[in-house]
C-alpha cells in the first residue's frame, strides 16, 4: 500500500492514514452489506409477523417489543406453516424435475465435451460453433417452437405426469450447450498424454471416459451441478408454458399462485419465497468446496 512506503509523513502519519483508510473501507463495506441484506432481512421479519403487526410496524422492525421488558409482539410462525403446506407438493415436483435435469445435462455435456476435445474427428469445429451459438439463445425466443414441438411429441397425453417429463427434457436439452462449453474448457487443460497413456494401456474410448476422464471431472461436475440446479430450479418461463395441470406445478409456479390465493398476506409470500430458495442455498453449501476447486482450475 502506498501509505506504508511513504516515509515523509512519518510513523504517526502512516498509522493515522492507514486507520482512516481502514475506517472508510469498512464503512463502505458495511454499507454494502446492509444494502444487500436489507430486502432479505425485511422479508424475514415480515414472514414472522401477524397480519396486524405487518400493517402497523415498519418492515425493518422485528416482531419484538423492547419496553418495558423485551418480549415478542405480533410474532407468529403461521406464515411458514401455511406456505410450507401450500408449497410442499410443488417442491416434490420441482425436485423430481430438477435432479434428473441437472444430472443428465451435466453428464451429457461432459460426454459431448470429451468427444469435442479428446477424440479426433472431422467437423468438430462446426459442431462446437453450434454449441456455442446455442448458449446465447434466450428462453423467450424458443417458447413458441417449444410449445409446438411438445404438442407434436405429446408426452403429456400418455400420462398425467407427462408435462413434467416434457419440462425435464426441455431443461436437459437447454442445459447441454452451456455444460458442454464449461466441460470443454476444463478438458482442454487435461493433459493429452493421460489419454494417450490410457490408450496404450488398452482402454477403449468409453473406458477412458469412465475410468480416467469422469473421475477427474468431479470438480467441474460440482460447478455445473450448482449452476444447472440454480438455473432449472429458478426457471419460471418454461414451466409456465409447459405445465397446465396444477398437480404438476413446480415451486416457482406455485409460489406465483400463492400470491393470487392469499392476496394480501405478505407474510405467507415471504415465507414461501424463503422456502423456495432454500434448496439452491443448500446445494451451494453442499458442493461449495468442490465448486471453488472447479473455479480455480
Amino acid at each position: 500500500m502506498a501509505t506504508e512506503t511513504s516515509d515523509e509523513s512519518g510513523l504517526t502519519g502512516t498509522v493515522s492514514d492507514l486507520s482512516l483508510n481502514r475506517v472508510a473501507l469498512y464503512g463502505a463495506l458495511l454499507a454494502f452489506v446492509g444494502l444487500y441484506l436489507s430486502p432479505l432481512y425485511s422479508g424475514l421479519t415480515t414472514s414472522f409477523k401477524t397480519q396486524q403487526a405487518f400493517t402497523q410496524t415498519s418492515p425493518l422492525q422485528p416482531p419484538i417489543e423492547l419496553l418495558p421488558v423485551p418480549h415478542l409482539e405480533g410474532f407468529t410462525i403461521d406464515p411458514w406453516l401455511t406456505a410450507g403446506s401450500e408449497l410442499a407438493f410443488s417442491m416434490i415436483n420441482s425436485f423430481a424435475m430438477v435432479i434428473p435435469a441437472t444430472v443428465l445435462s451435466a453428464l451429457l455435456g461432459s460426454l459431448t465435451a470429451y468427444g469435442l476435445t479428446k477424440v479426433d474427428w472431422r467437423g468438430q469445429a462446426f459442431l462446437l460453433a453450434l454449441f456455442l451459438a446455442a448458449v446465447f439463445i434466450p428462453y423467450q425466443a424458443v417458447l413458441v417452437p417449444l410449445r409446438q414441438f411438445w404438442s407434436i411429441v405429446d408426452i403429456s397425453s400418455l400420462h398425467e405426469r407427462g408435462e413434467l417429463v416434457e419440462l425435464t427434457i426441455t431443461h436437459i436439452a437447454y442445459g447441454i450447450p452451456i455444460c458442454t462449453i464449461l466441460f470443454r474448457s476444463y478438458y482442454q487443460t487435461l493433459d493429452d498424454e493421460l489419454i494417450e497413456a490410457a490408450r496404450l494401456d488398452g482402454a477403449s474410448l468409453a473406458r477412458i471416459y469412465r475410468k480416467i476422464v469422469l473421475p477427474l471431472s468431479l470438480p467441474m461436475f460440482a460447478v455445473t451441478l450448482i449452476y444447472q440446479f440454480t438455473q432449472v430450479w429458478n426457471d419460471f418461463l418454461f414451466a409456465l408454458v409447459l405445465l397446465s395441470n396444477r398437480a404438476n406445478y413446480v415451486v416457482t409456479l406455485e409460489l406465483n399462485a400463492l400470491q393470487g390465493s392469499m392476496a394480501t398476506d405478505y407474510g405467507v409470500q415471504m415465507a414461501g419465497a424463503f422456502i423456495a430458495a432454500l434448496p439452491t442455498i443448500l446445494v451451494y453449501i453442499m458442493f461449495g468446496e468442490q465448486f471453488a476447486k472447479g473455479q480455480t482450475l
Binding site: D191, E193, A197
Partner: peptide
C-alpha cells in the same frame, strides 16, 4: 508396446 511419457502421465486419481 509400452511407453513412458515425458510428463509421466500418471493417472492422478
Amino acid at each position: 508396446i509400452a511407453m513412458v511419457f515425458q510428463s509421466y502421465a500418471l493417472y492422478p486419481h
